[in-house]
């Protein structure tokens, strides 16, 4: 059953077509990843689904309720943690949570208890009574996320929940998201990292220029996109030899990073295996320092899907 649907969403800001016929279908009880570069329209899509941004065209529903016609019903079932922490800077973490709890119509005692509970669970107890303006970026993000969990929602929208976090905080947020889903929630998150979508999501939609350009399970997408093999060699002369060998094995021209003595080629699991690559390199007389299979970066995904490199924030402007 689809708990969030979007059909042909369109929205224009001045001369920017932020959403250009975006379609989504998010099955209930799953994590759905909206993957795309800066300016792809991720935030606009999430805000439209959360009843904040008006649409020029298309139709969206949450839990069967039309976002434009029944916003109150939609709001009752969703929480939004936006791209930037939306907290009262002058208030303490505890006060922020307490007030949000009260606005979710918890009683005084319940709101207080829930705030304490969440602050303890998310490692913020020590900072609970300090104004948020003294928090680190990671602490803010965590507080921002748990503000959405005071009364657990049916659908949680997370706009780039881990951007700018250290690996430990990121893992904590990932764990929280997984746990929410085991409790029956649906999570729609946006991200610029294929790795994040791969680790968390059961479904991924790749967005560019306001529309979905590829979608499927991480497995399907990876099969379609292929992974990358990175090889690090010992000397500059090895670069040439290894490049030839990799080309022969995969049929693709390796990208070469001369400073780091690293080569990188796309690879698909059907035709090549990791041990095969190592043997092939050794046969060619190269002893690699390191061979690793990794997911393509978002840039490489875009290169594969659109034939043009992913846009960097500078290029958007």
């Amino acid at each position: 059953m689809e708990i969030v649907t979007a059909e042909g969403l369109r929205r224009r800001f001045g001369r920017t077509q932020a959403l250009d016929g975006l379609d989504l279908a998010v099955p209930a009880g799953t994590v759905f990843g909206l993957l795309g570069p800066n300016g792809a329209g991720k935030t606009t899509a999430v805000r439209a689904l959360a009843t904040l941004t008006a649409l020029d065209g298309g139709r969206a529903t949450v839990a069967g309720f039309d976002v434009a016609r029944r916003p109150a019903e939609v709001r009752r079932r969703i929480r939004l943690t936006g791209q930037h922490a939306a907290l009262d800077e002058t208030l303490t973490g505890r006060e922020n949570l307490y007030l949000f709890g009260r606005l979710f119509h918890l009683g005084r005692a319940d709101a207080r208890r829930r705030a304490t509970e969440l602050l303890e669970r998310f490692d913020l107890a020590a900072a609970a009574d300090r104004p948020v303006r003294t928090y680190s970026g990671g602490m803010r993000r965590r507080l921002d996320l748990i503000s959405s969990l005071i009364v657990p929602p049916a659908v949680l929208f997370l706009d780039e929940p881990t951007t700018g976090l250290d690996p430990r905080s990121r893992n904590e947020i990932w764990d929280t998201i997984r746990e929410l889903v085991t409790q029956g929630a649906t999570v729609l998150l946006t991200t610029q990292y294929l790795e994040e979508a791969d680790r968390l999501a059961q479904h991924i939609a790749v967005v560019d220029h306001g529309r979905v350009i590829a979608s499927g399970s991480p497995g399907e997408l990876k099969a379609a996109l292929g992974g990358r093999i990175d090889v690090v060699v010992r000397t500059a002369t090895d670069l040439g030899t290894a490049g030839g060998a990799l080309n022969a094995m995969t049929g693709a021209t390796p990208e070469i990073d001369r400073d780091r003595l690293r080569l990188s080629v796309p690879f698909s699991a059907q035709s090549t295996t990791l041990p095969g690559v190592v043997r092939g390199l050794e046969t060619a007389g190269v002893e690699p320092v390191d061979v690793a299979v990794r997911l393509p970066s978002l840039d490489e995904v875009f290169l594969t899907l659109t034939g043009e490199p992913g846009r960097t924030p500078e290029a958007v402007r």
Partner: peptide, 16 residues
């Protein structure tokens, strides 16, 4: 300030 920080958006997305 509240609007810029997104606090108003959070409030607008809540069932209040």
């Amino acid at each position: 300030g509240d609007t810029g920080l997104g606090v108003m958006d959070r409030l607008r997305s809540m069932p209040i």
